[in-house]
Design a protein around this nucleic acid. Structure first.
Lengths: 342, 342
DNA sequence: GTGAAAGCGCTAACAA
DNA sequence: TTGTTAGCGCTTTCAC
């Protein structure tokens, strides 16, 4: 005679001389609904506790089609901005009984697609994605298949999705005005050459501010390719040294880092001649000399909102049509020494 | 008559008028071994490709007991050191067909245990763990159950496990000598009050070096509790200002960050009076003023070795006894301006 | 109120 | 060389 494994519903049923159905109902809180006697419930629960039974998620998932796993895909998980959000997402997810698969798409469409395909047809309940520019179709497909998707940081202008981000254009506009108010007149904007909406919006905000103030637009667009880091720095160096600028505004944290390295390598005093401003804050900007003014995104708030949306999508009956929500959060400008009037 | 879903082995078998076994064998590369005709193989493969069939991992896992998921548990995934390693682990894992669940234990035993229990009895093939001090028993249990475990960064002295790390004591000893060689005589060591082996080893290295050179041991041990960040800084401030020191050596990156903030807040020139050295490197140390000398751990190498070990454990027949390997990597000292002789 | 049994999609021992 | 079938552990319909 075959012996059922102890740590399974079958084992429990056998031991207690009841059916697996009863056990399952009790375990899934459907006991009342199914009018199972209190006595029975008590018995099952006690034994379950005694043997410290944990249902096999795998079997559960196979049966229900739900894996309790969500994917968190970002450009680069080792980037402080993303890592911080990841940390918070993790907390909320685990608390709600979900696990999180992290992955980095390196801002490459091929990598994004590969990852999505890897997870699709598989046991993933939802996606939180920081999308690379060319995967609109893939996102669309996911949505059509009723798979919960929430984008963040960047979006697709003509695709209605759930989304969490900040108003990059406005934040950038205000930040540029901050420079202008402090007397800077020849403001350079260093960004990457990309279709990423958040970057384009930041550029727009910058352009709007300088144009309104009759100042020249001075934009450096760097081809973003992981790997040619040195070449990137060389471009920044040339730009800083040879353009006639009195302030430099970096559109994202890793450019700022490269830029600060350039200053450091050239001469310590050089940086004091410029106003410096950056998108994305970092604790190190507070201890840099000079301290660097920065636009901070509300990372914790972003993470909460992302999980809020994800959890509510997860709860929804698949197929139930509903509005896609776009959540736009407030960023904040932290003025520090680097933008003090010279 | 029931219609099998197209995207399943059954569907394929039905469509091609063959049995699921044949399909399964072909799909799992056992065709040759099972002497399935080339013609048959061809036919199956072609159809599989045509409908872009992907096997259901869940069912596969339930059947085989292997989930192709590994857990990467660290103190805090948003810490740059861990995030960098995570990024590399991710790359290797996905390449080998594994997915990675990241989680942070906050260096708390309870959290570690909770997470391990969450994954245990569940669909996780292996664990890469940066253990909190009190979970030796839990790790032991995993190993007894033949579950692949690799520890890193810190270990349990009297527990033989697979492990990847650096020789913290030696690295710390050499780093302290570097300070001494540059003329510093009153070297303070700031660390956290913890049982973490890597921290204890770093302290030992420091102590050995100062003792050998007849210098005083000046150690500040801070209670590590997430949350009382300000209090932490206050302790550091008092220590720096009131002890008679000419150099300060921080045992880990977040203490360094707090320390640098203290200097920054008190007065810009103050820092130039001290030699400053830190464990764990960061790009920002290269652009800090002064540039900060640091001991760098080989993050990429650590990640590769971790995955090497994990993959080889995963491959092994469960139950096959084998030696646990401890891999000790070389760290490197990056002398910068902060330790130049004053 | 409780139980029997089908079936999620897959693997692999055994049969033919 | 290929097919039949049990069963991984669970949920849930239907029957009693």
């Amino acid at each position: 005679m075959k012996k059922a494994k102890k740590n399974s519903i079958k084992g429990i049923a056998e031991k207690l001389n009841i059916s697996v159905t009863t056990v399952s109902f009790v375990l899934n809180g459907k006991a009342k609904e199914k009018k199972i006697s209190d006595e029975m419930i008590e018995k099952v629960l006690a034994y379950v506790k005694e043997i410290n039974y944990k249902p096999n998620q795998l079997a559960q998932s196979l049966r229900t089609g739900k894996s309790k796993i969500i994917v968190f895909m970002v450009e680069d998980i080792s980037n402080y901005f993303f890592a911080s959000i990841a940390r918070k997402i993790e907390d909320i997810a685990y608390e709600k009984g979900y696990k999180v698969l992290f992955c980095s798409n390196e801002n490459k469409d091929a990598k994004s697609r590969e990852l999505i395909n890897l997870f699709k047809d598989r046991q993933v309940d939802g996606y939180i994605i920081n999308p690379s520019p060319g995967i609109k179709n893939d996102i669309e497909e996911l949505i059509e298949q009723d798979i919960p998707v929430v984008l963040f940081d960047r979006y697709f202008p003509d695709l209605e999705t759930n989304y969490v981000g900040i108003n990059n254009e406005e934040a950038s506009y205000k930040a540029t005005l901050h420079l202008i108010e402090n007397g800077f007149k020849k403001i350079g904007f260093i960004t990457i050459n990309t279709g990423q909406t958040q970057m384009l919006d930041r550029k727009k905000g910058y352009q709007k501010a300088v144009n309104e103030n009759n100042m020249p637009e001075k934009v450096l667009e760097i081809d973003f390719e992981a790997g040619n880091y040195l070449q990137q720095k060389e471009l920044i160096r040339n730009y800083i040294l040879n353009q006639d600028l009195d302030a430099i505004y970096f559109s994202t944290n890793y450019l700022t880092q490269s830029g600060l390295e350039v200053f450091k390598e050239n001469s310590p005093e050089l940086i004091d001649k410029f106003g410096i401003l950056t998108f994305d804050d970092h604790d190190f900007f507070k201890i840099h000399t000079p301290t660097i003014s920065a636009i901070a995104q509300p990372k914790n708030e972003m993470a909460s909102q992302l999980m809020n949306q994800m959890l509510s999508l997860l709860k929804k009956e698949s197929g139930s049509k509903d509005d896609k929500k776009q959540i736009i959060l407030e960023s904040s400008l932290h003025p520090r020494n680097s933008t003090i009037r010279k």
